[in-house]
């Protein structure tokens, strides 16, 4: 069941993005920003947590989940050190994803080269 929910919820979150691409003038870059900020808001409202419980990676892998991670990280940090946690929680929680992206960016840029789409 875990896998089914992951597939369906993850797929649906992507379909919403596709509808935004096809039916509105919103650009992909804005969709990415919108999803992360949206994830923070949904998580803060307490609505995203239950979805992650239900769908696992189906909710955490899309960028909404990245926003959720930021929001949860901030809560944990604020619990620990008070308002200063608002400055550290987001980076701490998202650290693995951002660091891995940058690291692989450097790694693959050394390894690969620009490829033609033709």
């Amino acid at each position: 069941m875990n896998y089914l929910w992951a597939f369906v919820i993850g797929g649906l979150i992507c379909v919403v993005g596709q509808l935004l691409i096809d039916l509105t003038p919103v650009t992909p870059a804005r969709i990415l920003v919108g999803y992360v900020v949206g994830g923070v808001v949904l998580s803060a409202l307490g609505w995203y947590g239950p979805l992650v419980e239900l769908a696992g990676a189906g909710a955490s892998v899309p960028l909404l989940g990245f926003g959720h991670l930021l929001a949860q990280g901030v809560i944990d940090a604020v619990e620990e050190m008070g308002w200063l946690g608002a400055f550290t929680g987001g980076f701490t929680a998202s650290g693995a994803g951002i660091c891995a992206s940058l690291l692989f960016g450097v790694f693959f840029s050394l390894l690969g080269k620009s490829r033609d789409q033709n």
Binding site: I21, P28, R115, D116, Q117, N118
Partner: peptide, 28 residues
């Protein structure tokens, strides 16, 4: 040149973007 134009005016060639149906293909 398609590749020179893409990297300067649109996105990196390896970027996964879907082209809109109205977009045109720069001739090389």
């Amino acid at each position: 040149h398609f590749c020179a134009a893409e990297r300067e005016f649109r996105t990196p060639l390896g970027y996964g973007g879907q082209r809109t149906p109205t977009a045109q293909w720069t001739a090389t």
